[in-house]
Design a protein around this nucleic acid. Structure first.
Length: 872
RNA sequence: GCCCGGAUGAUGAAACAGGUAGACAUACCGGACUUAAAAUCCGGAGCCGCAAGGCGUGCGGGUUCGACUCCCGCUCCGGGCACCA
């Protein structure tokens, strides 16, 4: 059979995929004798449309999976569906289709859209979180955790839409109003289940130190999120007798400023606020006002700081001074004690508040040569590193740490406080007043309380034939679902109708891939095999840096402590990929509204330098306005459907472009021309292989014997490139530079005369290596070309090329000559020359003499293999 | 508001450990091939300057023989902020 002259992606891609299917090339089996490599991309939400972000994510994963398989490792790359969530309910409202139906249809559709990409996925392990045989284990674990006290019930705050009579997600609250009703949102307290993640705070923090395969920024974000701080919990004793709790507790990390407290502020939800508002209508009105608006912290932190005195007073724990108690809208009920001591002189927020309400500002720490003024805030007021106590009686002269110790000791003596570790991390509220999620396996009995559903009654199956109305969960309108009997006493009881946060499903799916077929247990010993030492590579968006990754680390410890696995950190190496962005184009209509036009329907005009000067619509040739470069989205109509490109260029071109256009962690800008360029490169590789195969050479060169100097130099470049590509794939996870190196190699190959026999053998060696080096990125063309270069050998089972140290040897190297740090020339010098010889040679160069201008060299710096810098 | 990133030619980017700034590609310009176009191949190009040379990695300072890289202070853009996934 003769090799096809033309590169026809559709044909070779179909053939390659048929071959992989027939040889079960993607199947992952637990076998001994070689190291395992578990490569995981974050599973998608089945929205129905595969977008470029998915393609990028899964291509990165596939490149790594295939590369590690070529290194002889036992590779697992699974795929599944994060199938519960709000969009299915929203779609149900619009289309009148049940969420289950919509979701399953989307899964089928997206799976079909994934197939052409040629991903090396073991589809036998596919899972969907909305399947009862998945979520039943989540319910099972829930009941265990509930019994252990790691899940408990308390009041939580939610966004309440008073018009639609429903709880809204933060995303559904826009500027404090409901997205559908437009009504002003209120905060409402309802009972919810919480998972005690704070019980693992110390371990989750300490574990970050071991995650050396994670980006530093992600570890730092998690560390700040967990937010361990050592401070002092202390009490102000209330002057009034009426309030049953005599002590008002606060937490502070700045106990050294305690002597500067001029008021105390409590959250609007604080019991003391409620107490004080009982016979104070103005205060009650203020508290009601504080309860308007969303519960999102970003809204909370940017709103105007307001307060009102309660009329109550408390005694300073050390001085006994009467201190007014205020209600402040900026005090968080969920953090610390829901109350803060205010030191306006040394806290910027308190300072602004005190100025606004004319409260006293009392300086109690100072910095040498800095003058305090109540007129404006200065940075040093809050600086605990430089400051010492002043106006603080016996504490005067103490630095921050000493003052905290001394004050804490005195508070302890008075029985009014002690040092305490405080976490910013809060327990995880997992109850959702929504339908499309995992039912919480609890039955409420009048006599027995909250009773977990026994194992033999699991799963609590979510009814799928429902109508979504947009007001509350349909489960709470389905007596056939919630009417049940108490598992303990048998009396009529009510089943919980809330479902679990969808983050719960995504907190353990990566473990279940190891044993998706086990219907007798949540997890089994196969997890210990695949996840030993952690999942070898996890790949997903940076937007998951905190919540998902923290919950997954928490959950792994929960199942460990349930005795199911022997693993603490689930993800050994983490790669956070950037977004896929594209230019936007629009036209304004008569009303000034923007109509977004897809980049595929726009032509950009450039001037003679290639600078863009305008754009026109392909449809009518009329100009369109150029918007910004934004994340591909439906709303800006700047998405490009992967399928369109695969149809035109083939999957390999799409994969190559995605890997070449930017490093994986950066955002990737879409470019039609770039895709075209990727296609051109593949066509060039194909042509080169075609011409070579036509020569009939099949034996690869394996040394420098018989090569010309020029050919030796090309062979050196080949082996340098192999080393670089291995480093880029394996250590740096940077594929764009690996591709660039291979392109450079081919450019060098074009410039080298390989027409003799030795040259033919070198061309064979080079092409075999190039095809295998490209294989992880463009496996279809790789499969086809390798079959031509080495008939009968399967590229999918080939080993990755290795650099030959003998090929790398070099007699002469080039050094740069700098004078005064500026580049002035270069010299060629024997590779083994010592520093003295290099220095002498450098000083003798024309360039050095010219720029030294007759002056003597003050200092000569020789950087071996790089440059010589002469300082005059 | 708080936490975390990013900014380099016309464009995407490279420079991996402080040592040749702009590799590789795209767009552009010129040439070859062609009846012509496409495709392909060859060449050019950071900016200023005829040149010598000077300037140049968001802005302002600093450390160093030497800074895209380290430090301090800003600006703008992006991610997250616990019920979007």
């Amino acid at each position: 059979m003769f090799m096809q002259e033309k590169y026809i992606p559709a044909e070779i891609e179909r053939a390659a995929q048929d071959h992989w299917r027939a040889t079960a090339a993607d199947r992952a089996v637990e076998v001994g004798g070689k190291p395992k490599y578990y490569c995981l991309s974050m599973f998608p939400y089945p929205s129905g449309w595969l977008h470029m972000g998915h393609v990028r994510n899964y291509t990165i994963g596939d490149v790594l999976a295939r590369y590690h398989r070529m290194l002889g490792e036992n590779v697992l790359q699974p795929m599944g569906w994060d199938a519960f969530g709000m969009p299915a309910e929203n779609a149900a409202l619009v289309n009148q289709t049940p969420p289950a139906h919509w979701t399953r249809q989307n899964i089928d559709g997206m799976k079909q859209q994934l197939q052409p990409l040629g991903l090396s996925i073991d589809w036998q392990r596919e899972l969907a979180t909305c399947a009862p045989d998945y979520y039943r284990w989540e319910q099972w674990l829930f009941t265990r955790l509930f019994e252990k006290g790691l899940i408990y019930k308390k009041q939580g705050t939610v966004n309440w839409d008073p018009v639609d009579q429903t709880v809204l997600a933060n995303e559904q609250v826009i500027d404090g109003h409901g997205w559908r009703s437009g009504a002003l949102i209120e905060k409402r307290e309802i009972p919810m289940y919480y998972m005690k993640i704070t019980a693992y705070a110390e371990e989750l923090l300490a574990g970050l130190e071991t995650l050396t395969g994670w980006p530093e920024e992600v570890r730092l974000m998690q560390k700040n999120w967990i937010g361990k701080s050592v401070g002092v919990r202390l009490a102000f004793v209330l002057a009034e007798e009426t309030y049953p709790e005599q002590k008002l507790w606060v937490f502070t990390t700045r106990a050294d400023t305690l002597m500067g407290v001029t008021f105390v502020a409590v959250a609007a939800e604080h019991p003391l606020a409620t107490h004080a508002a009982k016979d104070n209508p103005a205060l009650a009105a203020f508290i009601a006002e504080c309860k308007k608006g969303s519960v999102a912290e970003a809204d909370f932190a940017t709103m105007e700081k307001k307060g009102m005195p309660t009329g109550l007073f408390a005694r300073h724990p050390l001085t006994g001074e009467k201190i007014p108690v205020w209600v402040g809208n900026y005090v968080l009920m969920g953090y610390g004690e829901g109350a803060v001591m205010a030191v306006p002189a040394h806290d910027e927020r308190d300072f602004a508040f005190a100025q606004k309400y004319s409260l006293p500002i009392k300086q109690v720490i100072g910095v040498t040569n800095e003058a305090f003024s109540v007129d404006h805030w200065q940075e040093w007021y809050g600086d605990k590193h430089r400051a010492v106590c002043v106006n603080s009686g016996k504490y005067d002269g103490l630095a921050h740490a000493e003052a905290v110790e001394a004050i804490a000791a005195d508070l302890a003596l008075a029985g009014l406080g002690e040092k305490e570790v405080q976490w910013r991390l809060r327990d995880w509220g997992v109850s959702r007043q929504r339908y499309w999620g995992c039912p919480i396996p609890i039955v409420h009995c009048e006599d027995c309380g909250d009773v977990p559903v026994p194992d033999d009654q699991l799963p609590v199956v979510l009814p799928e034939n429902v109508t979504i109305t947009g007001a509350g969960s349909p489960l709470s309108r389905m007596p056939e679902f919630f009417e049940t009997v108490c598992p303990k006493c048998g009396k009529p009881a009510r089943r919980e109708t809330d479902t679990l946060d969808t983050f719960v499903e995504s907190s353990w799916y990566f473990l279940r891939y190891a044993c998706p077929d086990n219907d007798g247990a949540m997890l089994d010993e196969r997890v210990d095999y695949w996840c030993a030492g952690g999942i070898d590579q996890y790949i997903g968006g940076i937007e998951h840096a905190i919540l998902h990754l923290l919950y997954a680390r928490f959950f792994t410890r929960l199942v460990r402590d349930a005795g199911l696995i022997h693993l603490s950190e689930p993800f050994k190496n983490l790669l956070t990929q950037g977004m896929v962005v594209a230019p936007t184009f629009y036209r304004l209509d008569a009303g000034g509204k923007k109509h977004w036009i897809n980049p595929a329907e726009v032509e950009v005009k450039t001037d003679e330098h290639g600078r863009p000067v305008g754009a026109t619509a392909k449809a009518d040739g009329q100009p369109v306005s150029i918007g910004g470069i934004e994340k591909m989205s439906k709303s800006k109509n700047n998405g490009i459907a992967p399928q369109t490109l695969i149809d035109r260029y083939g999957a390999d071109t799409v994969r190559l472009f995605m890997m070449f256009a930017s490093p994986p962690e950066q955002s990737l800008e879409w470019s039609d021309a770039g895709v075209e360029g990727a296609f051109r490169f593949l066509r060039r590789v194909w042509k080169l292989a075609y011409a070579h195969v036509g020569r009939g050479v099949t034996a690869a060169n394996s040394g420098n014997a018989g090569l010309t100097e020029e050919q030796k130099s090309l062979r050196r470049k080949l082996h340098q490139t192999i080393g670089k590509v291995r480093n880029d794939y394996g250590r740096r996870l940077q594929f764009n530079t690996a591709i660039a190196a291979i392109m450079e190699l081919l450019n060098a190959c074009d410039r080298t005369d390989l027409s003799d026999d030795a040259g033919g053998a070198l061309a064979q060696e080079l092409l075999e290596a190039v095809v295998l080096m490209l294989f992880p990125i463009v496996p279809h063309i790789g499969q086809a070309l390798y079959a031509e270069l080495k008939p009968g050998v399967d590229a999918a089972r080939a080993a990755f090329p290795q650099a030959d140290p003998a090929a790398l040897a070099q007699d002469e190297i080039e050094l740069m000559i700098q004078v005064g740090g500026k580049l002035r020339g270069q010299i060629r010098i024997p590779a083994n020359a010592d520093a003295a010889a290099i220095e002498a040679a450098a000083l003798a160069t024309k360039a050095a003499r010219k720029f030294m201008d007759g002056k003597p060299a003050k200092k000569v710096i020789v950087v071996p293999g790089r440059l010589v810098n002469i300082v005059v």
